[in-house]
Simulated assay, not measured.
Amino acid sequence: MDYGIKLDGLPAERVRGLATPIDRSGLDELWVVEDLGLAGGFAQAATLLADTSAVRVGLGISPAAVRNPAYLAMEIATLGRMHPGRFRSGIGHGMPGWLRQVGAHPAGLMTALDEVTAAVRRLLAGETVSLDGGHVHLDGVALTHPPRVPPTLHLGVRGPKGMALAARAADGVILAEGSGPGYVRSVRDAVGPGRRITVFAWLCLRPDGEAARAALRPVVERALGQDFMRFQLGAASTVDDALDQVTVAGDLAGCLRQLENLAEAGADAVVFAPLPGEERDQIDALRDTLLPAIRR
């Protein structure tokens, strides 16, 4: 299994400042986000790819509803040519509330994601694409410089329709924070053995396991109160259940146990999401404690 870290909500200069420690940590991947109001996803990814040499860089996720597929393919192709094999692209339909805020909510969220994914894949493969769909409208568009090896496309989805689309049209799926082994197992059953499952997981690794769990408790409590999280959280009806199932939290032994459960459920990669302000401390803990224990 691969291991990575996700930097979420930080000012762009702080993201860049963590690039070298992450590149030297032994982690396999570094993921950034493109949430509304935060730093641009492709700008972050391009800078981090240039600043690092060992880690792969992922963008999870770019919202299909607000990005024209031709221009999205141009961005992906550029990073694919500049940094072959090191960029992972994530696409989702976008959070409905954010889409409404910017006046970009499509008539059909899944239609938008389906058509954008299909168009981007064809463009990255070097095809000339014409499509007059429910959301995407392209007339004879092609990339002048398609990537020699197209970067992998991963869909950030939650429900059955999204998983069916991922199984048909993507190289893998990205599961947001709040995904426990039971949910991962159901996703593996839905997408089959040939699709990569990347799990984002809240992280708090400390020598005092109870203190680590207590630090993540408010995060998990908020997640339990959000309707859109219910599908992922599944049987985790209490905060303690959720802390056990959907986080990597506690002392070393506890974190190793939770990672083993995710691996047995079918995860191919776990991308750790540390608490705000604890990024550097958790990078050090991963480098010095967790990764050596895993690789022993």
Results as ranks from 00 to 15, higher is better:
Arg168Leu: 09
Arg122Leu: 15
Glu177Gly: 15
Ala112Leu: 07
Thr111His: 05
Phe200Gly: 02
Arg195Lys: 14
Gly209Val: 09
Met110Val: 09
Thr117Arg: 03
Leu153Lys: 08
Pro160Ile: 03
Lys161Ala: 08
Leu113Thr: 02
Val157Ile: 09
Asp132Gly: 12
Ala142Leu: 04
Ala201Trp: 00
Ala223Pro: 07
Gly182Cys: 12
Val191Gly: 00
Arg195Val: 09
Leu153Asp: 13
Leu109Tyr: 04
Leu138Ile: 05
Thr198Ile: 15
Ala169His: 13
Lys161Trp: 01
Ala164Lys: 03
His145Tyr: 10
Asp114Ala: 13
Ala164Ile: 03
Arg188Asp: 08
Val149Met: 14
Ala215Ile: 06
Ala125Thr: 04
Val136Gly: 09
Gly133Cys: 06
Asp171Met: 15
Ala176Tyr: 14
Phe231Thr: 09
Phe200Thr: 02
Ala119Met: 10
Lys161Tyr: 07
Ala112His: 04
His135Ile: 04
Pro151Lys: 07
Thr117Glu: 14
Gln226Ile: 12
Leu203Ser: 05
Thr152Gly: 15
Ala190Met: 12
Val220Arg: 01
Leu165Tyr: 02
His137Lys: 06
Glu115Gly: 07
Arg230Ser: 07
Arg122Asn: 08
Arg122His: 14
Leu124Ser: 08
Leu143Met: 10
Ala112Val: 11
Thr111Glu: 10
Thr152Ile: 08
Ala142Arg: 15
